[in-house]
Each structure stands twice: as structure tokens, then as C-alpha cells.
Design a protein around this nucleic acid. Structure first.
Length: 309
DNA sequence: TTATCCGTACCGATTACGTCA
DNA sequence: GATGACGTAATCGGTACGGAT
């Protein structure tokens, strides 16, 4: 149980994926939620479904891998009722069942250990190795049958980790060793994570492209605006420049035009309250008309009205 | 209460085997 | 039949946590 919690902290588990949330400027595609291709933790969430025969079988209160409360009240470090200590081949491990399932390396890979023997024995599942040539001392890789893979896949969809009881039950059901089931789940998690990472990379790549394009567009826009500003003829055709004035005491901004009448009280920004002052014409300070021009994109111009009201 | 050890579970990286083109 | 690519079962070394002392 704590194990699960730990792993959650360690690397986000599978859902992890990359938890970066780029704003990704262009529209909603920057949102994971709106990404039809993938959403982080989606895969994991698929496995957090509380329904299913396994839940009924083991009655686990909480299997959320993210919260690592997957095992709920069941302590994985505690031996399950050890009537089922012996594995499916009837070979009992010299170690505890749990350690035989996934003990330390030295224990679980003891070349001559009984557990190893059990696993070797279990590798002759079915009829495909009955010639006896299969299970010698060398590392013999066995292919899982379609049925076994199917069951494992289905179980993985239910939840991507197993507690010892589940592992044992599944191992029995499939006529595999618990260790094999465990390894299969580990490898399966690794594959899922790898796939997720690939999807994340693709997404990031598209985000990057979009941002580059947006940046290019904005640079161009800036250039155009600069050209517009520097062009003397344009000034001829432009209306008199509008300036903003700021109250020196309250620093509120008012809009005024040099060709129009002096700012009336209605143009003075929110001189509300006893400490607010009308803008005296002789202390008006010009302020750039587009003060947000230097602000980051996301801060303008929606911020401006707020500062002027 | 803190430190240390042990057992356990998991991970990433790698190896090695089986299958297929 | 030999071979390389690929998928994946299995192994290795490491980390982190909980419980016991």
C-alpha cells in the first residue's frame, strides 16, 4: 500500500505522462481535456474503474492508482490468508508467499531455489512444452497464450496493479506463476507509459509548432505597426493623437484628445471617493495610448479596461 | 521521538528469446 | 536455412515506503 503511494509520488505512475499543461496559445487544443487524442492520466483512469469482477472478488474499497489507495484496507505487505501460500503447482516457497511473488532479487532469482523451480515448472503450462525440452536451467522465455494475454489485458483494464491476492488468483486462473503475472503487469505498465510518452511528445511537438507560428505572426504584426508609426505621411492622415492623462495622486488614467475640449469630468476615470481627485489640466501627464503594448500577449488588452475603470 | 534495519513493491534499463518477414 | 527487426518475457540494479526494534 505504501508502495503504491510512494510510486505515485515518484513518477506519477502511468498517468503521469507529462503533467505539463501548456497554454498553447491557439485555441482549445492546448487543453488536455480538449485533446481528443489523449489526456494525461486517461489511461490510468481507465483502470481506476471500481466496477468489475475483481472488485467483487476482493472487495477492495479503493483502487485508485493515483492516490495509491488501490489496496484500500488491504496491506500488501501483509500476507494474505496463507492457505493460498503455495503456488499453483503446489510448490511452496521457502520464503513467504509475498516474497516469493516478488521478493528481493536474491530471493526470487535464486537459481536453485524452490520458487525458481516452481516457476520453471509453471512454465511448462499447457501442452506446448510437454516434450520436456523447454524448462531447463537457462532462461527460457515463454509466450503467453492468447487466452492468457486476453485475461491479463482485461484485468489490466480493470486496474493496472495487483495486490497479492489478486495476483495469486490470477496466476491460478491462468496457470502461471505469481511472479509471471507480476512481471507481465510491470511490463504492461512500462509499455503503457511508453505509449503515453510518445503521445505526449507528439502533442508537445504540435504545441511548439503552433506557438512558433503564433510568434511569427505577432512579430510580423509588430513590424507592421512600427512601420505604420514611423511613416510620416500617415501622421498627416491620422486624427490628432489621443493621450491619456493620469491623476498624480490617485494615478487613475483619463483619455483626452488634444483637439477636443479639455477633459470633462465624465472623461476622468472614476474619481470616486473622498480621496479621488479630478485631473487638473496643468498636471496631466501623457501616457501612451496603448500601454499594454509592452505587456505579454496574454495580459492584453483585456487587462486595460480594468485599469481604466 | 528518532535512527536503523528488513521486507516488500515497483521502476527504468537491459537482456534474451520467440516470431515473422 | 540464415538473418535482422521487432515484440515481449525475464532479469538486474536501484529507490522508496512501512513496520519492527
Amino acid at each position: 500500500m505504501g508502495e503504491r503511494e510512494k510510486m505515485g509520488k515518484k513518477d506519477d505512475g502511468l498517468g503521469l505522462g507529462l503533467s505539463l499543461s501548456l497554454g498553447c496559445g491557439t485555441g482549445n487544443q492546448g487543453s488536455w481535456e480538449n485533446n481528443p487524442i489523449h489526456k494525461p492520466s486517461q489511461l490510468v483512469q481507465n483502470h481506476t474503474d471500481q466496477k468489475g469482477p475483481w472488485n467483487e472478488l476482493f472487495q477492495l474499497p479503493d483502487r485508485n492508482p493515483d492516490t495509491r489507495s488501490f489496496l484500500g484496507g488491504v496491506d500488501v505487505n501483509r500476507l494474505p490468508s496463507m492457505v493460498d501460500c503455495e503456488d499453483e503447482n503446489g510448490v511452496s516457497s521457502p520464503n513467504s508467499t509475498v516474497s516469493s511473488i516478488s521478493g528481493k532479487r536474491g530471493e526470487r532469482s535464486e537459481p536453485n531455489g524452490e520458487e525458481n523451480e516452481a516457476e520453471r515448472t509453471s512454465c511448462s503450462r499447457g501442452s506446448d512444452e510437454e516434450d520436456g525440452s523447454g524448462c531447463d536451467t537457462s532462461r527460457k522465455k515463454l509466450r503467453l497464450s492468447k487466452e492468457q494475454s486476453l485475461v491479463l489485458e482485461e484485468t489490466f483494464k480493470e486496474h493496472n496493479t495487483l495486490n497479492p491476492k489478486q495476483k495469486l488468483a490470477l496466476a491460478r486462473q491462468l496457470n502461471l506463476s505469481p511472479r509471471q503475472v507480476e512481471v507481465w503487469f510491470q511490463n504492461r505498465r512500462a509499455r503503457t507509459k511508453l505509449k503515453q510518452t510518445e503521445v505526449d511528445c507528439e502533442y508537445m511537438k504540435r504545441c511548439c509548432e503552433n506557438l512558433t507560428e503564433e510568434n511569427r505572426r505577432l512579430q510580423k504584426e509588430v513590424q507592421e505597426l512600427r512601420a505604420l508609426k514611423l511613416s510620416p505621411q500617415l501622421y498627416m492622415h491620422m486624427n490628432p493623437p489621443t493621450t491619456l492623462t493620469m491623476c498624480p495622486s490617485c494615478e487613475r488614467v483619463a483619455v483626452s484628445s488634444s483637439s477636443s475640449t479639455p477633459p470633462s469630468s465624465s472623461t476622468v476615470a472614476a474619481p470616486v471617493g473622498p480621496n479621488r481627485h479630478r485631473v487638473a489640466p496643468h498636471v496631466q501627464r501623457p501616457v501612451p495610448i496603448y500601454p499594454w503594448a509592452t505587456l505579454p500577449i496574454h495580459n492584453r488588452p483585456s487587462d486595460v479596461p480594468a485599469s481604466r475603470s
